[in-house]
Amino acid sequence: MANAPDLMAESAVLAEAPDPMRPRLFRIAKFTHNTHDTFTVALEDLETGAGIGFRPGQFNMVYLYGVGEIPISISGDPQDRSVVIHTTRAVGTVTKAMRSMRKGDTLGLRGPYGVPWPVDRARGRDVVIVAGGIGLAPLRPVLYHCLAHRNEMNKLVLLYGTRSPVDILYREELESWRARFDLDVYVSVDRGMEGWHGNVGFVSTLIAKAPFDAGNTTAYLCGPEVMMRVCATELIKRGVPDHELFVSMERNMKCGIGFCGHCQLGPVFICKDGPVFPYPRMRNLLSPWEL
């Protein structure tokens, strides 16, 4: 009997382990409208009054009672554990319901989940961050990380593309980043209008203009798949090694922790093997484009 498993002790441990499918309650401490269809919530744990630790690129499963549960990346500063920040674009049932919430309302969170951006890889290298549309939100923690460890890397470049000037996310922050001497920020919109004096053109056209040493660059890309594919191709054309490119993938999710198979893409589960992947692993899985 000496080697028999202690079933009583094991079941006691299991009973105490938190149920990975049960959300924790968070209160909206701050609600900000960013653009006509995007908004940011700062959340505090109802029990602790604080946020959670996370690594850039990780996401939470956000649960709205009676509506549904969706994956949303954490878009705050990984150094700041006082709140959890999510920036969301209202596109459908859950995200639109979330947009109608207000300060003081509660929602559920599970996480943080997923493979983060490999930010340590950037040490001693140039860093190029390429974001499209709401894709800037999952990349903002990378930028915060890089700025907090600025002396560890060489050039730091942000290339951001979006639909039109009214869709520009984090406008004020972009302005303050642009004013820094240690960060090159390029913004381009697909459609310009009167009063817009910045770049107009697909975000990929910024790659040839930006100053970085391609052979010694690590690049992080997030946005629509077509955009990531086109930009990855341009970066490789400029000389960035393909294994130095990282992309963040999106698929609908249910469990968020590798149980249900809902997020399967080819041989991988986006929730547990990703959402961040080395580009060579995703090259043939990203949506193709034909011209």
Binding site: G161, D190, F202, G223
Partner: peptide, 10 residues
């Protein structure tokens, strides 16, 4: 580039 702009990928 114009085709991608027209595709309205965002």
């Amino acid at each position: 580039a114009l085709s991608f702009q027209l595709m309205d990928v965002y």
